[in-house]
């Protein structure tokens, strides 16, 4: 995975359009769902994602220290936060960030260690098969068919588990919310 990305990154720096196309195809859906969670509009989400890719293409000489994937998510997140600011909003408790990561299945992306930790803990509490499927999908980046193959279950069953995991995680994080608020206040006062 990482070697693949390094190769892709090199090709893109050489302005290889096919490589760029592949990059777009690979991450578009995730980035789109991620942005949509924030801006709540498919049109706007598409615009933000495309703009991020265009910026990347125009500045392809820039060295990206971490992975391309993290970079893309970070850029999209920043554009989304800018949009929220334009309507005088702020994601103070980073619940939107958690939700966006769950919906877009991009939990493994290192956007915020605090949020990642919370999601990781919530994943730990998922029912067994649900947890396994979700981990394989979001952490190992396996395709549904690959997971089905590995676990010897149907592709549909994988889909159902991923969907179930998302639903449970969303709910869990929101029910944790009041508690989290309390904690963050405590931390601030110390």
């Amino acid at each position: 995975m990482i070697a693949e990305e390094r190769l892709l990154s090199k090709k893109i720096a050489e302005r290889d359009k096919n490589a760029f196309r592949l990059l777009f195809e690979t991450y578009h859906a995730q980035l789109f769902r991620f942005a949509e969670t924030y801006v709540c509009s498919p049109d706007l989400a598409e615009d933000i994602v495309q703009e991020v890719f265009i910026k990347l293409w125009e500045n392809s000489h820039i060295k990206i220290s971490r992975s391309l994937r993290s970079y893309l998510f970070l850029m999209v997140k920043n554009a989304c936060i800018d949009h929220l600011r334009s309507v005088k909003l702020e994601d103070k408790k980073k619940l939107k960030l958690a939700e966006a990561q769950i919906i877009s299945e991009s939990v493994g992306v290192n956007l915020d260690s605090e949020v990642s930790l919370k999601i990781k803990r919530a994943i730990d509490e998922l029912p067994d098969q649900c947890k396994e499927v979700y981990r394989m999908s979001v952490y190992s980046g396996l395709k549904h068919a690959e997971i089905a193959d590995e676990l010897d279950i149907s592709v549909n069953a994988v889909k159902v588990q991923v969907y179930r995991a998302k639903k449970l995680l969303k709910k869990k994080l929101y029910s944790l919310k009041e508690l989290l608020v309390l904690f963050s206040h405590l931390f601030k006062r110390v």
């Binding site: 359009k17 760029f20 196309r21 578009h28 859906a29 949509e36 890719f53 969303k170």
Partner: peptide, 24 residues
């Protein structure tokens, strides 16, 4: 939540590449 699956995201790759070609 079913409507927010990754599979149901419209594929805009061709459109995007067209724009990119124009842009560059």
């Amino acid at each position: 939540l079913e409507d927010l699956s990754l599979e149901s995201v419209p594929n805009t790759t061709d459109l995007f590449m067209k724009r990119l070609n124009r842009k560059s």
